[in-house]
């Protein structure tokens, strides 16, 4: 295991984050605050409590998930796409590193950034609503697992993408709708039966449900399923990455 290589990539990526610290942190915090103002305060005041939780508090886990997923995917995808785009990938390909080390470096860095932003949003939400977290350890575990899994997913997107449009396509066209339809702002039990059944095919439902359970002890699907779903997705991403590096797909002509 070339641990120094992982550290080098991690440090390099974090360096990039710190160079643009302002925009990295400011924009998600601003966006989330807007959500709180619009959904939590303006609309939320007209919505009843959901299972004894005020609407403003109810949307906190979903909001964190929304931003964390977007951040993890876009950071990791950009992280590996950029070297491909400017040609510095030659160094990764000619270095004595395996796919595991390269992936670990980029994914850990992207996950760290997503996690940090998730925690900042959690902190911001305390300014707007009152929350007590029932299962803090599980909350942290779900958050970390989500950051890692979706950073992995983003890493795959970054390798797959052949231009900037494709790079932005997935976060925009896939992640955002899945999160909105995944119960970020409502409980899927509020949906008609048919839509509830369809929602169960949306992987993000399991994420948000599990995460919300860690906050309030409320879940749309059993929390065990949430763990299985996210771990399964993690394994699929790992398998795809192993295949990419073995075949050199989109990396080595």
């Amino acid at each position: 295991m070339n641990l120094r290589a992982i550290a080098a990539i991690y440090r390099f990526e974090m360096g990039r984050t710190f160079r643009t610290l302002g925009q990295s942190v400011l924009s998600p915090v601003l966006t989330t605050s807007l959500y709180f103002v619009v959904f939590g305060t303006a609309i939320g005041s007209r919505i009843d409590e959901i299972d004894g939780v005020s609407y403003g508090a109810f949307i906190v886990p979903g909001l964190i998930m929304l931003t964390v997923l977007q951040q993890a995917v876009s950071n990791a995808s950009f992280g590996i796409y950029f070297p491909k785009f400017i040609g510095t990938i030659y160094e990764l390909l000619s270095a004595p590193v395996s796919f595991l080390e390269v992936t670990a470096g980029y994914v850990l860095a992207a996950a760290t950034k997503a996690l940090a932003i998730g925690l900042i949003i959690l902190g911001t939400s305390f300014l707007f609503v009152e929350i007590t977290i029932q299962h803090p350890v599980w909350m942290a575990a779900f958050l970390v697992l989500t950051c890692l899994t979706f950073a992995l997913f983003g890493f795959i997107i970054g390798i797959w993408a052949q231009n900037f449009e494709q790079l932005q396509l997935v976060p925009l066209l896939v992640i955002t709708p899945l999160v909105f339809l995944g119960g970020a702002f409502y409980s899927i039990t509020m949906l008609p039966d048919a839509w509830q059944a369809i929602s169960l095919f949306n992987p993000v439902v399991y994420l948000i449900s599990g995460f919300r359970w860690a906050f309030f002890g409320l879940a749309d699907v059993p929390v065990g399923w949430s763990l299985v779903a996210i771990s399964g997705f993690l394994l699929v991403c790992l398998a795809v990455i192993a295949w990419i590096f073995r075949t050199g797909w989109r990396l080595r002509p």
Binding site: R4, A7, A8, R11, F12, G15, A95
Partner: peptide
């Protein structure tokens, strides 16, 4: 955007 010395350090780290 990288600094000269950090990109050279990076190469060394990458090679373990």
């Amino acid at each position: 955007f990288e600094k000269v010395i950090s990109t050279v350090r990076f190469s060394r780290g990458l090679f373990g």
